[in-house]
Simulated assay, not measured.
Amino acid sequence: MDNIWAYAADCGYGEDRSLVGFEVEATDGVVGQVERQTDHDGMRHLVVDTGMWVFGTSLLIPAGLITGIDSDSRRVIVGRAREEIKAAPRFARDSETTDVAYLSEVGNYYLALDPVPVS
């Protein structure tokens, strides 16, 4: 993973594409639905509404975790397990989606995880 905040060239993302409303799927199940996508100073990420999975909270997924986008089924595929995503630093306020210190904490969390095994 070269840049945790950039969409991989082969994930299927186009610059003019909105992912809002797409379902987010981890390696072992659904995480939630894209609430919004943000690009703060080149730190691209999705804000995902988890519904009841994580007690109705939202979480942040850096664009570099996206391994695929299926437009037909409106799904974003993320190369991490649900428990890894659930354990990531949470944000409590919308302003944190533009807080560089918070974004760095999230990025560092994912970068510290073992690489995703290639199937």
Score class of each variant (00 low, 15 high):
residue 1 M to A: 09
residue 3 N to C: 10
residue 3 N to H: 12
residue 7 Y to Q: 04
residue 10 D to G: 03
residue 10 D to Y: 06
residue 10 D to E: 13
residue 11 C to M: 02
residue 13 Y to P: 03
residue 14 G to N: 06
residue 17 R to V: 10
residue 19 L to Q: 00
residue 19 L to T: 02
residue 19 L to S: 03
residue 20 V to E: 12
residue 26 A to R: 00
residue 27 T to R: 11
residue 28 D to I: 00
residue 30 V to S: 14
residue 31 V to A: 08
residue 32 G to N: 07
residue 33 Q to S: 08
residue 33 Q to E: 15
residue 33 Q to Y: 05
residue 34 V to C: 10
residue 34 V to K: 05
residue 35 E to P: 00
residue 35 E to R: 02
residue 36 R to Y: 04
residue 37 Q to G: 01
residue 38 T to G: 05
residue 38 T to I: 15
residue 39 D to P: 11
residue 41 D to K: 06
residue 41 D to I: 08
residue 42 G to C: 12
residue 45 H to D: 04
residue 45 H to E: 01
residue 47 V to I: 14
residue 48 V to Y: 04
residue 48 V to P: 01
residue 51 G to W: 02
residue 52 M to G: 11
residue 54 V to G: 03
residue 54 V to E: 13
residue 55 F to P: 01
residue 55 F to R: 12
residue 56 G to W: 01
residue 57 T to W: 08
residue 58 S to P: 02
residue 60 L to S: 12
residue 60 L to E: 10
residue 60 L to D: 08
residue 62 P to V: 09
residue 62 P to K: 13
residue 63 A to R: 01
residue 65 L to D: 01
residue 66 I to W: 07
residue 67 T to C: 11
residue 68 G to K: 04
residue 69 I to K: 03
residue 71 S to Y: 04
residue 73 S to L: 14
residue 73 S to G: 00
residue 74 R to E: 14
residue 75 R to V: 15
residue 75 R to C: 15
residue 76 V to Y: 03
residue 78 V to Q: 01
residue 79 G to K: 08
residue 79 G to A: 14
residue 79 G to C: 10
residue 79 G to Y: 10
residue 79 G to H: 08
residue 84 E to P: 02
residue 85 I to W: 04
residue 85 I to T: 02
residue 87 A to I: 06
residue 87 A to S: 15
residue 88 A to T: 06
residue 90 R to E: 08
residue 91 F to H: 13
residue 92 A to I: 14
residue 93 R to A: 15
residue 94 D to M: 12
residue 95 S to D: 14
residue 97 T to P: 09
residue 99 D to I: 03
residue 102 Y to R: 10
residue 102 Y to S: 06
residue 103 L to G: 04
residue 105 E to G: 07
residue 108 N to E: 14
residue 108 N to R: 14
residue 110 Y to S: 08
residue 110 Y to A: 10
residue 110 Y to N: 10
residue 111 L to D: 07
residue 111 L to Y: 02
residue 111 L to K: 06
residue 114 D to Y: 04
residue 118 V to M: 11
